[in-house]
Amino acid sequence: MNQSYANVEPSRAEVDALPGLTLVEFGTPWCGFCKAAQPLLADGLADAPGLRHLKIEDGSGRPLGRSFRVKLWPTLIFMRDGKEIGRVVRPESAALVRRELQQAQAAKL
């Protein structure tokens, strides 16, 4: 699990080209909801050591977040081979994150 938000974001085309299972997390380091979600994410993602986790700093005018229609932070987008297969907005429990991860791992495209 990434600990820091990247303030330089990849392009949407780069994210869409990623093979395998990817979690794209949108938020900011100063967001209270984002800070509160970090222990839940750490617990919920603990059984997924091979998961690609992109932690992207979002904000007004940031094209990647807008391309995913992100409105609230944190927003977690689970992708497989460049396709969105699940989304969690402001997770309230590690169990919710774990359940969404399991569904993403089982999803067939």
Rank of each mutant, 00 (worst) to 15 (best):
E25S: 12
S60Y: 14
C31G: 09
G32W: 10
A104D: 00
N7S: 12
Q103S: 02
A37W: 10
V88R: 03
G59S: 02
S11H: 10
F68N: 00
N2A: 13
H53G: 03
R52V: 08
I77G: 05
K55Q: 12
K35N: 04
Q105N: 03
P39Y: 14
A36K: 11
L109W: 01
D81Y: 03
V97F: 14
E100S: 10
Y5V: 02
Q38A: 12
L72M: 15
F68W: 04
A104S: 00
E92Y: 11
P10E: 05
G44A: 12
N2F: 08
P91A: 03
R80P: 02
V70E: 15
T75W: 07
D58T: 09
G59T: 07
A107P: 01
V8W: 12
F33C: 15
T75N: 11
G50D: 10
K83D: 01
A106D: 00
F33K: 13
A37V: 08
T22E: 06
L40R: 02
A42T: 11
T22W: 09
M1P: 13
L64Y: 06
Q103I: 00
A13H: 10
V89M: 09
D43I: 04
A37G: 12
F78G: 01
E100M: 10
P29Y: 10
S93L: 09
S67Y: 04
I56C: 03
Q3S: 14
G61W: 14
L51S: 02
K55P: 08
G82C: 02
G20Y: 04
A46T: 10
L23N: 03
P74I: 15
V15D: 00
P39C: 12
S93W: 08
E14R: 07
R80G: 00
I85G: 06
L51K: 00
G27L: 06
M1A: 15
S60K: 12
R90A: 05
I56A: 03
A48V: 09
V97H: 12
K71T: 13
L23E: 02
P74G: 15
L54D: 13
L23F: 03
A17L: 07
A17D: 02
G44Y: 11
S60F: 13
